[in-house]
């Protein structure tokens, strides 16, 4: 029960930080961050050229 509660709080702190586009480092696990992908032109297989929308994506870099 306590472990579940702790996990819930850890995830809440981590997710809250990511929603603010912050970075969080946890020892022995890795670093969580948000990276921005710019909008870019992309050619589909059928020859269409589309402008892909930008995106903010969650990035995880494991600790080595």
């Amino acid at each position: 029960m306590t472990e579940k509660k702790n996990e819930k709080e850890i995830v809440a702190v981590l997710a809250g930080n990511l929603k603010k586009h912050g970075k969080a480092q946890i020892n022995r696990l890795g670093t969580f961050s948000v990276s921005h992908q710019k909008q870019k032109q992309h050619q589909e297989k059928d020859g269409r050229i589309v402008m892909k929308p930008p995106a903010d994506i969650i990035t995880f870099t494991p600790e080595k």
Binding site: K19, G47, R48, I49
Partner: peptide, 29 residues
């Protein structure tokens, strides 16, 4: 190790651009 983010969290993080679809610039060849 990689992380596949939870869909709802990913959408919350990407709320600024969520729901956007690609804009077609040129038609198929």
């Amino acid at each position: 190790m990689i992380l596949e983010p939870d869909q709802s969290l990913a959408m919350e993080v990407n709320h600024k651009y969520a729901g956007m679809s690609p804009i077609e610039i040129s038609p198929p060849s």
